[in-house]
């Protein structure tokens, strides 16, 4: 049941993205940004939280979950450390993923070669 909820929530978020992709001229990069900012905004006004409670990884793994984590971190930072916390909180909450992307990205770039599509 838990996995089913994750699957459905995550799948549906991606379907929304696919619909935007297929009906507009937007690129996947635009979709990433749209979802991210939606996550930040929905997180800020408290609408993303219930989706995370219900769908768990289905809501946190999509990039909108990254946006949610950023805004949640900034708000929590504001609560505990005021204005400094606002600047520190968002990145602190998401630092793991970003650092991993930089390090693994660099390593992969060194050890592998792009292949022509066939």
């Amino acid at each position: 049941m838990e996995y089913l909820k994750v699957f459905v929530v995550g799948g549906l978020l991606c379907v929304i993205g696919q619909i935007i992709l297929d009906t507009t001229k937007l690129t996947p990069a635009h979709i990433l940004l749209t979802f991210l900012i939606s996550g930040v905004v929905l997180g800020a006004i408290g609408l993303y939280e219930p989706l995370v409670k219900f769908g768990e990884a289905g809501a946190t793994v999509p990039i909108s979950g990254f946006g949610y984590a950023l805004s949640k971190g900034a708000i929590e930072g504001a609560k505990s450390n005021g204005i400094i916390g606002v600047f520190v909180g968002g990145l602190k909450a998401t630092a793991g993923g970003i650092s991993a992307a930089i390090l693994f990205g660099y390593i992969m770039a060194i050890v592998s070669e792009p292949k022509t599509k066939s």
């Binding site: 995550g10 799948g11 978020l13 991606c14 379907v15 929304i16 993205g17 696919q18 935007i20 992709l21 996947p28 990069a29 979709i31 990433l32 979802f35 793994v61 999509p62 990039i63 909108s64 979950g65 990254f66 993923g97 991993a100 992307a101 930089i102 693994f104 990205g105 660099y106 992969m108 770039a109 592998s112 070669e113 792009p114």
Partner: peptide, 20 residues
């Protein structure tokens, strides 16, 4: 499509592919 782009793995893909 979007099913591969939107999860955080797609974010990683968007970083590694130009780096390579």
């Amino acid at each position: 499509g979007a099913g591969a782009a939107i999860p955080i793995t797609g974010f990683a893909n968007s970083i590694v592919s130009p780096a390579m």
